[in-house]
């Protein structure tokens, strides 16, 4: 019981609640717009829920496929398995069903799966080679905290509004092209109906972008919560702080691509890829590393980890 109260960050909880409330308001606004437009909100949400459910149940398989992560057995990676097992026990969750490795040099890791029972933890080969055991433990703790906090479920359901609004945006776009936004109706009402549909269309676009922002914000809060929870599991916030610094440091900038590949591709590129700017950080799913490191160091300073 005591551990749970230590794990709480009240400020963070309040922020998550506010973001959640704003998301609810966005849902209500979308619902209202649908009622005005005469589109049946139930049908639209049922389609949206169907799409989200598919994502929810397939997430682990899809992610493994798209990232090329290969499950590894205990015999192949005894140290990694032992680390995940030990930290899961401390965290009070079952050991994730799959532990996988991605053959990539960039140090990175992710956790996925709709529930702790169906969870997958994957790390890149680069993460194993670049981090020492303590740092690796910090990263694994963070990923297990995501599983414990059921972040895949939270984020998948939170993103339902983006799925629905995105779907509506497309639908209204095609309707405007082929249906003329009610242009076929009687002459008197046609103009009014069209204006109404334009309002709905613009409203949906605004809701789409606002909910994207809210979900990115929520995701950043969940990351901070996972940093905290993971550090309580490992008992050392500095482990994760040190890993984060290494992961985001200069080494992480070294590309994996072959020079010849870039030569061919670069022939047509004049402007270099956009790098971090204000918009990117607003939409970013992760908080800046400096902020995460500072919070972890503060946690270490307060010696909360000793109370595990």
């Amino acid at each position: 019981m005591q551990r749970n109260s230590i794990g709480k960050d009240h400020q963070l909880t309040v922020r998550m609640l506010i973001t959640g409330l704003m998301l609810v308001m966005a849902y209500l606004a979308l619902f209202g717009l649908l009622l005005i437009s005469g589109i049946d909100p139930i049908i639209v949400f049922v389609i949206g829920i169907g799409m989200v459910l598919f994502q929810y149940f397939m997430s682990d398989k899809l992610v493994l496929k798209t990232t090329g992560a290969k499950p590894v057995t205990k015999e192949e990676q005894p140290k990694l398995h032992e680390m995940v097992e030990r930290l899961s026990k401390i965290g009070g969750i079952p050991k994730p069903r799959t532990i996988a490795i991605m053959e990539m040099e960039a140090p990175n890791a992710f956790a996925t799966g709709r529930s702790p029972k169906h969870a997958t933890v994957a790390v890149t080969r680069g993460l194993l080679s670049k981090l020492n055991d303590e740092e690796l433990e910090g990263v694994i703790g963070h990923e297990l905290a995501h599983i414990k906090n059921r972040d895949v479920m939270v984020m998948t359901w939170a993103s339902l509004i983006v799925v629905v609004a995105g779907f509506l945006m497309q639908m209204l776009f095609w309707m405007s092209l082929f249906g003329g936004f009610g242009g076929h109706r009687r002459q008197g009402n046609g103009g009014q109906a069209m204006a109404m549909m334009m309002v709905v269309y613009i409203g949906v676009i605004i809701i789409y972008f606002i909910s994207q922002l809210l979900i990115s914000t929520l995701s950043r809060y969940r990351e901070l919560a996972a940093d905290r929870e993971g550090s309580i599991m490992t008992g050392s916030p500095t482990n994760l702080a040190s890993a984060l610094k290494k992961i985001s440091g200069q080494i992480a900038q070294i590309p994996e691509k072959d020079l010849r590949q870039v030569e061919h591709a670069n022939a047509f590129f004049i402007i270099p890829a956009l790098q971090g700017n204000a918009i990117a950080s607003l939409m970013s799913s992760h908080p800046p590393t400096e902020m995460r490191v500072a919070r972890l160091m503060e946690m270490q300073r307060q010696n909360w980890h000793l109370l595990r």
Binding site: I251, Q253, K257, D258
Partner: peptide, 24 residues
């Protein structure tokens, strides 16, 4: 690589920024 890079830079060799250290 980082170690060699730092060493080369300290000797005044013009060094590519890290994001251009492509593999071969």
């Amino acid at each position: 690589e980082m170690e060699i890079g730092n060493l080369l830079a300290s000797m005044g060799i013009p060094l590519e920024p890290h994001e251009n250290w492509y593999s071969l």
